[in-house]
């Protein structure tokens, strides 16, 4: 087997690709509507919103920066965008919402790096605050309706037949991939996540890298919040509630480590597509959407277990070799 084939066979992304393909085939065979381009477009546009947030999470996790406040950021930026949209217009609204997201990233990064608060608990706390602020800005849980304008364009219109959210997701994914795989800055993030002490002794600023990481996750969540507001045509304070778990599940499913130092943008894209395909297919099959939550949990644990096995060298290649050896051995012993 060539080195490339061997490495491909050992990558976690491959499992996910096979799993995704199997899911697509299964649902296409079972439901005539599933395979239509209208459904796929809708599915992809839906996946794009959380996908953008997942890109930020992937980059942040590379540096070991856990951020459980992304759902709150999504809601707040959406609500702020809607609020500003009704008062000063769409472009300012978009910029304003992004500014809020950046501010959230700075606060998270400062609390975690400057004061050394455990990121898990710190961002869990800021998540509550952000959600509360979203309700404050919105005034009521009905949210703020957004009239036609730039935000709705971003959320619902198309560029050369492709919905804008998908285009943005694709662009951000490529940027994220290039950053992590090919730039010194991205490698520095991974080094910091893998062993902060080693990174520091090599002259890499650990706190700085982690601040950028929190900025990335909050910034991406801000973009996702604007996209979501555009898609639904309103800024909803309860938007994306509980979806941080879905995003993290998808990212971990893709092979990114929750403990930093190991991150794959391609895996996260596949992870989000898989999770959303499952949801879409189950809805079409009229299976309760709650099944999706359950399956997501199962896949999360299974994925982490598989990655662990792989780190121990127990991948499909290893399995195949073992089976082959077992089959061969009696023949060798035979006279």
């Amino acid at each position: 087997m060539s080195r490339f084939a061997l490495r491909a066979a050992r990558s976690p992304e491959l499992y996910l690709l096979v799993l995704l393909a199997a899911t697509l085939v299964w649902f296409s065979a079972n439901n005539p509507f599933f395979g239509t381009s209208a459904n796929f477009t809708g599915l992809a546009a839906g996946a794009a919103v959380l996908g953008v947030a997942a890109m930020g999470v992937t980059v942040a996790l590379a540096a070991g920066a856990i951020d459980f406040s992304i759902a709150g950021t999504i809601a707040l930026s959406g609500v702020v965008a809607a609020w500003l949209d009704t008062r000063v217009g769409g472009v300012v609204a978009i910029l304003g919402a992004l500014a809020v997201a950046v501010l959230v990233g700075i606060v998270n990064g400062t609390v975690v790096t400057r004061f050394g608060i455990n990121p898990f608990i710190a961002t869990l706390a800021t998540a509550g605050t952000l959600r509360g602020l979203a309700f404050l800005v919105a005034g009521s849980s009905a949210g703020i309706v957004i009239e036609d304008g730039p935000i709705v364009t971003i959320g619902q219109h198309e560029i050369v037949g492709i919905p804008v959210p998908i285009v943005m997701f694709a662009v951000i994914a490529v940027l994220g991939w290039a950053l992590l795989a090919h730039t010194p800055a991205g490698r520095a993030l991974l080094a910091v996540g893998g062993n902060p002490e080693a990174a520091r002794l090599s002259g890499i600023g650990v706190a700085g890298a982690q601040r950028w990481a929190y900025l990335a996750s909050a910034g991406a969540a801000g973009v996702a919040g604007i996209l979501l507001a555009g898609r639904t045509g309103s800024g909803l304070p309860q938007a994306a509630a509980g979806q941080e778990l879905l995003v993290y599940s998808a990212v971990i499913l893709g092979g990114t480590s929750l403990w930093g130092g190991r991150a794959t943008v391609i895996g996260s894209v596949l992870g989000i597509l898989f999770v959303e395909t499952l949801r879409n297919g189950l809805v079409l099959e009229r299976v309760s959407p709650y099944w999706q939550t359950i399956l997501q949990g199962v896949f999360l644990v299974a994925a982490v277990w598989l990655v662990r096995q792989q780190q121990l060298g127990r991948d499909p290649v290893w399995l195949a070799q073992r089976i082959a050896r077992r089959r061969r051995s009696p023949q060798v012993e035979a006279p």
Partner: peptide
């Protein structure tokens, strides 16, 4: 990780 998974499973 395990309880993040079972959180989804039990809650779902």
């Amino acid at each position: 990780i395990v309880t993040l998974g079972t959180f989804s499973i039990f809650g779902g």
